[in-house]
């Protein structure tokens, strides 16, 4: 009797700790479902300019830089050459840079990409699904995702060549 009572006590206390811990962590770290540095990068299924559907799983095992941008956003336009330069520099070293356009027409994006000579993969997000799941508010916002799918760093605003290089270096070494 005494032994089984103790077992029951331990089981109940453990259950309370597990449930309570779950409740607190989901509420506190959840922060309205927006991903934060250290959390898992949300998946996406988006149509690329190449006509194929791309998802996050495709880039598993590679360091990934996800840049959210729009043609109307000046800092986004200004950082495009830096992104392209870094794409060329790192593309053979298992680093991928992708651009996700925030809800514009295919045509506008295609014209823009041609104009500024961007060759890294660009995807369209007409329903702003990825924008929402990544919790983007200002553009540009850049996510640095490590090969294991965790968000290493979130950068708000324009990136220059040097910081970008540093961030990618850090990402590769992480």
């Amino acid at each position: 009797m005494g032994k089984s009572r103790k077992k029951v006590q331990i089981i109940i206390l453990l259950l309370i700790v597990i449930l309570g811990g779950y409740a607190i962590t989901t509420q506190v770290s959840g922060s309205n479902g927006k991903p934060t540095e250290g959390s898992k990068a949300p998946n996406f299924d988006l149509l690329g300019l190449d006509g194929k559907v791309h998802s996050l799983d495709e880039y598993k095992g590679k360091a990934l830089v996800v840049n959210f941008w729009g043609t109307w956003c000046e800092p986004c336009v200004k950082e495009m050459p830096a992104l392209q330069a870094q794409y060329d520099k790192w593309k053979d070293k298992d680093v991928v840079i992708v651009g996700i356009n925030a809800g514009e027409d295919k045509m506008a994006v295609e014209n823009f990409v041609k104009q500024v000579h961007v060759s890294f993969p660009v995807m369209l997000d007409p329903e702003k699904d990825a924008i929402q799941s990544y919790g983007i508010s200002p553009l540009p916002t850049t996510f640095f995702v490590s090969p294991n799918g965790k968000i290493n760093k979130i950068h708000l605003g324009q990136l220059d060549l040097q910081t970008l290089d540093q961030q990618i270096e850090e990402l590769v070494n992480s």
Binding site: L13, I16, L19, G20, A23, I24, Q27, V28
Partner: peptide, 9 residues
């Protein structure tokens, strides 16, 4: 939340 969990316990 901790207070609620403790009340539950």
């Amino acid at each position: 939340i901790l207070l609620l969990v403790m009340i539950g316990a």
